[in-house]
Computed example of a mutant assay.
Amino acid sequence: MDETTFAVRDVAIDVAGCEAAPREERALACQRLQPGSDVAVAHRAYRSEGVDRKTFQKITVLLPASLQAGQSVSFADGAGAKLIYSDGSSAFPGKSDCYGLATRGTAHVVSMDQASVVLDVDADVALISPMQWAGQCEAVHIGRRLTARVVPLDSLGAWEGRPGSDDTIYEEARPH
């Protein structure tokens, strides 16, 4: 498994815009980072178990920039923090993906400085299928510590959530 965790300052996620994206892009569009005023902590995981058995998992936690070490914030009201979860096939992105926003839970900032962020996440995410396939997506619970190094937004590529104009969902669904 190929995994990476990173943090980015001065970012946003256009949740309303991702919901308006073509449905085969939604699970990945909701993970796209753009300039803004928040802090994102993101985890990306890729697994290859054969020719057509490649999968991705993406978690992005968006936090208010004012949050400090020792503080917690809720995902419940959507105003304090957001957690976006996506998973699916890297070989066939857009066909069997699942995604969703955390509907309850918290993020607790263990430490945060200019170089790194350590975040404890405990959240429930109700997943949906952008293709509207009944029974395709089940709810997930995320309970984990994310330890991230801070990187600049312009250093990220499609896999991390910053696709270029020539990138497709295939570049977003696997590391390069």
Rank of each mutant, 00 (worst) to 15 (best):
L119K: 01
F56Q: 08
A81G: 10
V41M: 02
A40C: 10
E172C: 06
S165C: 00
R104I: 07
A158Q: 05
S37F: 04
A20T: 14
Q31N: 13
C98I: 09
L156H: 08
G157L: 00
G17V: 09
K95F: 12
L83P: 00
L63P: 03
R144V: 13
A173H: 00
A115D: 15
I169S: 08
L33C: 11
R47Q: 14
A16K: 12
A102Y: 02
G135M: 08
D14P: 05
G135C: 11
V150E: 08
A20Q: 15
A65T: 09
L101R: 06
A69S: 15
M1F: 07
V140D: 05
I84F: 01
I128S: 15
F56H: 12
S111R: 06
R32H: 06
I13A: 10
S72H: 02
Q34C: 01
V73H: 01
D122C: 00
G50K: 06
S165N: 12
A173L: 03
G80S: 15
R23Q: 12
R144C: 06
A29K: 00
A12K: 11
A123T: 10
L153Q: 03
P163W: 00
I59W: 01
V117D: 06
D167N: 11
L62C: 07
E171I: 02
A79Q: 15
T106C: 02
L62Q: 04
F6G: 13
D77M: 00
G100Y: 02
V51E: 13
S86L: 03
D52C: 12
S111P: 01
L146R: 03
T4G: 10
D14M: 01
G100D: 05
A7L: 02
V41K: 03
R145T: 15
V125R: 00
A27W: 02
A76R: 04
D87G: 13
R23M: 09
